[in-house]
Design a protein around this nucleic acid. Structure first.
Lengths: 342, 342
DNA sequence: TATTTTCGTGCAAACGATTGCATTAGTGGT
DNA sequence: ACCACTAATGCAATCGTTTGCACGAAAATA
């Protein structure tokens, strides 16, 4: 049987309410009783029942994590482990614990979120993806429940709090970087087009080209569902063009790995015959052959900051609506673009 | 304000208890009332308060996940996303949700587990690592709380339920495989030595050598904390030996990536001058250059099975103590060992 | 028709905390 | 010695469910 607050109360010769106040460290209890109660708690090995507690004070000290549906292999991207690490760290610091939900279909994920929110299982939610047109975000907004999005939510971003990288800027910067290295024929390989990230990074890429006076060729912009082909066909398509590119911006390290692998098979050498730059600076970027030049976006920080905003919202310290946090990024130069070879 | 069971009861003209029984789909309630109550629930948008529910029936429908302390970068290994995906899938199928705990120190992780268990926040726990001499496992065992370990727990494995790969066998097999390809000088590069996995895989490696009549050189067995150096020094040490190896068994794909990267820098070609084989068959194995020959251990399955066992335990359908599930593995041949070059 | 079964519901007591309000004891001022 | 006031603690209602038991009505049996 569980040790309850009553047992502690009996042991310490006080009322349950007193014990409760000791737990909350209320100033209304004398130092002496506190000592006594704490000792009793220790002796009996008392731990408060979280459900009773949540029920009584209508707070859970837990935050919910919404992941993309597990059916897709998206989850395999180390990106997620890393955001979660950030979230988890901040959460832990503030005494929150984490509650996860996923489903195999989009519908299941949605149901999970609803029951988590309506069932009062969590105090707030962080949404780990942003897709165009998403029911989950819509629902959270409608129910005025505290939440924050990692990544830019498609619509109405002015009303939702989110933390993100300036992907547009990053896309522009890397493209310019390639141009500075002397490349004129620069292609873009991206993942799923309905992800906000991809769109932004392409946007930056295009802007850079324009600013540098390089014409934009649609045939230079290819997107491929990553986890299936690894971007092999994307690369092949590019290389079979009349004027194949000499450099390529890839929207993500994972994908870059696939691209480099294909290039390797085709016996096109990186960086000599093809420069590759990508985003996220996952730790594998460091260990690929050749090591990848990639944009460090501080994924951990993304998660950490998101949680920070969420907690502010929960405590109602936040501005009523739509805070927007941009986590800074920077280019980590390795060897996949030549230039500053190590 | 939340919609409670009483509101539904009033709306449907029944007692709260009846509503409760409808939720549980008790056969004692007539079809007609069930309809009526369900409709009322629908209309009011009723969702049961999970805490009240847990409090009353002493069950949470949640399972706890214990991760290694977040301080280490271990978490970055895609291995974890993948086990979690397995766990999450099975959990979801059975109406369980997931509850995570981590801490920056080992002590914090322990405290997290204790309060999660004693606070009755979860019905069972799956432990995602196995280290020699671990307080967490000890605690769970002492408190007779349902739990299962992914990986082999160091001590007393006869009393704890765990699911694992036969790492010993796998280690033996890959070593023999290299020998069949004609290699005589085979080294082993492993991660942290106090992980059960490493120990087992080395064990298999040694056995294979013995069985093939190849002497075991201690200098051929190196271990390196992965996330720091990427195994670079391990490789350098091996290559500076009088008789450097011609093949190497690496304990994990991540590490193999580091090893290959170092070899690449040293201009030692894989597979021509050095064959590399590793374990886990993470998706990056497919996209490295050259693609890695690796042992597929079905990480997803590991998580899935573990959860299965856990749920059995929770429902007390399990054999009282120490079930042991071995998930089968097989070698995926790619190009890092030469031989069957694609 | 009287009596027992069965069936469907409702009552009220848990579950283990929190918290507003009442109560008591202790202090100091007059 | 009396009163007012503060400080420390206890009482009891509450949070939203579940569940054992009691109860009445209808159906089955004699």
């Amino acid at each position: 049987m569980q040790v309850t607050i009553k047992d502690v109360a009996r042991e310490a010769n006080v009322a349950p309410s007193t014990v409760s106040r000791v737990i909350a460290n209320s100033p209304r209890i004398s130092q002496k009783t506190k000592e006594r109660v704490r000792q009793a708690m220790e002796e009996l090995g008392y731990y408060p029942n979280v459900h009773a507690r949540s029920l009584a004070n209508r707070t859970t000290q837990a935050i919910g994590l919404v992941m993309p549906s597990a059916a897709t292999k998206t989850l395999q991207n180390p990106f997620f482990s890393e955001v979660i690490r950030g979230i988890s760290t901040k959460a832990h610091q503030n005494g929150y614990s984490l509650y996860m939900t996923t489903g195999v279909s989009e519908e299941e994920v949605y149901e999970g979120v609803v029951s988590m929110v309506q069932g009062r299982r969590v105090d707030g939610v962080v949404v780990l993806y942003s897709r165009t047109d998403d029911k989950v975000v819509q629902f959270l907004q409608d129910s005025k429940f505290p939440f924050v999005v990692v990544g830019k939510p498609f619509s109405d971003s002015s009303h939702v709090t989110y933390v993100d990288t300036d992907n547009y800027l990053a896309g522009r910067e890397v493209t310019k970087y390639l141009h500075q290295l002397g490349h004129e024929c620069i292609a873009f390989v991206g993942g799923s087009q309905d992800l906000a990230v991809t769109q932004e990074r392409v946007g930056g890429y295009k802007t850079a080209l324009m600013e540098e006076g390089i014409p934009i060729h649609d045939s230079y912009i290819v997107s491929a569902p990553f986890m299936t082909t690894g971007g092999a066909d994307a690369v092949k398509r590019l290389m079979s063009l009349e004027h194949p590119p000499t450099a390529v911006v890839v929207s993500d390290d994972m994908m870059a790995l696939g691209v480099m692998s294909t290039l390797n098979e085709m016996e096109i050498s990186v960086p000599n015959q093809m420069a590759v730059v990508s985003f996220n600076n996952l730790f594998i970027a460091e260990f690929s052959s050749p090591p990848l030049t990639s944009v460090e976006i501080n994924i951990f920080g993304l998660g950490f900051e998101a949680t920070n905003c969420l907690i502010e919202q929960i405590n109602e310290e936040a501005t009523p609506y739509g805070k927007r946090v941009i986590v800074p990024h920077y280019l980590v130069v390795r060897q996949s673009c030549g230039g500053t070879a190590k």
